[in-house]
Amino acid sequence: MTASPRARRTLAGLALALRLALVKLVAIVPTLLIVATLLFFLLRLAPGGPFDRERAAPPEVMRALEHKYHLDESLFAQYGRWLTDLLFHGDLGPCFKYPHRTVNEIIGATLPVSMHLGLMALLVALAIGIPLGVVGAARQNRWQDTLSMAAALVGLSVPRFVLAPLLVLAFSLGLYWLPVARWESWRHMILPVVCAALPTAAYVARLTRAGLIEILGADFIRTARAKGLSERRILFVHALRGGLLPVVSYLGPGFSGLLVGSLVVEKIFNIPGMGRYFVEAALSSDYALLTGVTLVYGALLMVSNAAVDVAYALLDPRVRGT
């Protein structure tokens, strides 16, 4: 097995990156436990209980409901029960608002939808954002740059809740091209995905442009230019790899941000995703559900951050060196 120095360097970098990721992954569990514990106690201190409704139920009923969900026990007994269920059975508890479902079932049913939407939106955002950014950087200060960056800034300045109804009005109600809502065929997915993706695409475009401009000013690019390599080759072979680093480091928070940000899109397009529970569960004192979605969100965020770290370490020569 003869390994070239370059391959060996890559392997060493990979090992380092994996170690880094492992450390991060191991740190996830205690971090999540702290988050969940904080949330558990904070939520129960908030005024109002999960069974309060407009019409007061007879006290006998309230007592029965509280007893059924062990809310009549002491806080610490509840915490112990919740923690045991979580750690030993992976059970996030019952949902108060929808007693026919457990939190596990709800997350199991809604997370895939949100992931689907989020991943597609992320791909679309990258597919739009990176080329826009590359155009901006390659044609810096020319009309192509102005146009692409103007588009990006507009994308950043129009909230999704304005964008979504506008798109629906134009493409569904006006032109009758696409369905107005719901999550069925690929045609149903176009508007929500575009709507979720556009602001992210705008951000990606700006990041790409900034990153590329920085790299294009670097010494090794000058050297490459001096060697007479074509601009295109310099841009796509040499610069892009380093220039995309800011985008890569944004992917982690960006993806989990899309999950929460999809809340608006899910609401407007009636998509059965997880985003809505961040608000709903908090407002209806659905303790276990809120803790559950927060844990899932936190875990996703941290795992995607760890994954990004690995990718980063593989791409960035400076990290590899240290």
Binding site: A27, T31, L32, I34, V35, L38, L39, L42, L43, L45, A46, P47, V260, L263, F278, V279, A282, L283, L290, T294, Y297, G298, L301, M302
Partner: peptide, 22 residues
């Protein structure tokens, strides 16, 4: 920085709602 990490994993919406509710 661990505290910052923990807060980062809180979806900010939940924080705002909780703060508002409280």
């Amino acid at each position: 920085m661990r505290i910052v990490d923990i807060l980062f994993t809180f979806p900010f919406l939940i924080l705002v709602i909780l703060l508002k509710v409280f």
